[in-house]
């Protein structure tokens, strides 16, 4: 027992030492993502590390174990305590993060968000796809595949993810305006971050709506789950699944036709942009209309809502999927 206590004390001392050593560094950039360990954020991590090395910025990613807003709050609190200069966040829930982000700002920390336009408490939010542009691109493709008529259903990551819902709004709006013969069933389903739930919900919806011809799935696991359901029901080529997903994960499904396609932006590029922006803002540079920033192109910042929105869409289809998958996405 005594030996155990000594060992425990030794371990905690060395840990404490390690933490103080870390905190002594200056100019650190910590980026909290929705969830660690999924390919999307692994790619973002790669982008963060590469760009960090290139610009000489100490940037690192923090990935919570599940897509839980409370875990993100805790991670941000930790970063504040560590005394980082810049906090980057890809929020799970915009509202929940407001207080902790404001707290970070009060401490003089620069806050950059991604996939959460007009985030309260952020200095800047950047998007590689505009909500309208992204939603409409998917809606257009779905309408083409469905021949402009029939029923379709919409999945989002969660009913509280603002961006997924904005895409869904834009897509629905576009379809309503341009394809009056297409009909949305059942509002929208907050299942697309969970492959099992996406699969079972898709199976249920196919049963419930015999005329269902399409799924728009906004959320990384949604198209995969819906695609598997289509395979199970042997509806490949009759029901079309569209949405952004990880090409490596969906490669087989898109080749077999269970997923028809989608658009994405490159999470690795997003990771790089996080670091590039952090570097610029730490140096005190201002972002102006017409600036050409690496990874974003020419920007037109919306100063009032502190958004930087560009359209850098990458199509995922039978032709492009292999190359994208090779990038580790």
């Amino acid at each position: 027992m005594k030996r155990f206590v000594i060992a425990a004390v030794a371990v905690s001392l060395s840990l404490a030492g390690a933490f103080t050593a870390l905190a002594a560094d200056s100019g650190k950039v910590g980026i909290v993502v929705k969830i660690g360990g999924i390919p999307w954020f692994n790619a973002m991590d790669a982008g963060i590390k590469e760009q960090g090395k290139k610009l000489g910025v100490d940037a690192f990613m923090v990935g919570p174990t599940s897509a839980d807003p409370a875990l993100q709050v805790r991670a941000i609190e930790d970063l504040i305590a560590q005394g980082v200069k810049v906090i980057g966040v890809v929020p799970n829930d915009a509202k929940v993060l407001e207080p902790v982000l404001s707290k970070a700002k009060e401490k003089g920390i620069i806050v950059i968000t991604h996939e959460s336009p007009s985030q309260k408490g952020a200095d800047w939010d950047f998007e590689l796809a505009s909500a309208t542009g992204f939603g409409e691109a998917h809606a257009k493709l779905l309408a083409e595949k469905m021949g402009g008529k029939g029923e379709y259903a919409v999945f989002v990551g969660s009913l509280t993810v603002p961006l997924h819902n904005a895409w869904a709004d834009a897509a629905n709006e576009y379809i309503k305006k341009n394809y009056p013969d297409m009909k949305l069933v059942g509002e929208r389903y907050g299942v697309a971050e969970d492959v099992d739930k996406s699969r079972s919900t898709a199976l249920d919806l196919i049963s419930a709506h015999p005329d269902l011809k399409g799924f728009l799935a906004f959320g990384s696991q949604g198209p995969i789950g819906a695609g598997r359901a289509i395979e199970e029901r042997r509806k490949t080529g009759e029901i079309f699944v569209l949405g952004p997903f990880s090409p490596g994960q969906g490669q087989k499904l898109i080749k077999s036709g269970a997923i028809s396609g989608g658009f994405m932006w490159n999470p690795k590029q997003a990771g790089e942009v996080f670091v590039t922006l952090a570097d610029k803002l730490m140096k005190g540079e201002k972002l102006k209309d017409g600036d050409d920033i690496e990874g974003l192109g020419v920007i037109h910042p919306d100063v009032e809502n502190h958004n930087i929105i560009v359209d850098q869409l990458v199509p995922i289809n039978k032709e492009t999927v292999a190359d994208l998958a090779k990038m580790g996405l």
Binding site: G186, E187, D204, A208
Partner: peptide
């Protein structure tokens, strides 16, 4: 229950 809610078309909210 989950299956029924989907089939009924109850609002996911």
């Amino acid at each position: 229950t989950q299956n029924g809610l989907n089939l009924l078309g109850v609002s996911p909210f």
